[in-house]
Amino acid sequence: MNLNIDLIVNNINYIGAMILFVIGLYTVLTHPNLIKKVIGLNIMETAIFLFFVSIGYVQGAVAPIVNPETGEQMFVNPLPSAMILTGIVVAISITAFALSLIVKIHAAYGTIELDEIMKIRSVELDD
């Protein structure tokens, strides 16, 4: 039991990222509202960012900004942070594009509930 609590406390970032990922996937799968699906997608992206940045974390290290006066220091891994910066920008672009598509869908069908859109589309196909 003692070991289990240690495992949870030491890896709390990984556990949080995994729970966030499952919450986002649940939102994407179960909600028919398209905007809520986009929100779920963003939660999943955040989970991946948290996991990736946690990989580069080093106990007791500081942010990778070199100060020549303080001398030798431990720095966290700068590579995952730099990659996640790219990921955030891509996430913003994807979200903006998805929201503009939703605007167009609302103009075409008058609703953003996926099951109602499916109903309208099936009626159109039958005709």
Binding site: N11, Y14, V22, Y26
Partner: peptide, 29 residues
Amino acid sequence: TFIMLGGLLVVLLSSISELPPMGNGDNPS
């Protein structure tokens, strides 16, 4: 969906013991 995602969460969480410990300076990353 809830049961399936619960299973996925268990699978994900069980992989933690195989990951390198967080905050260790000797990690492969």
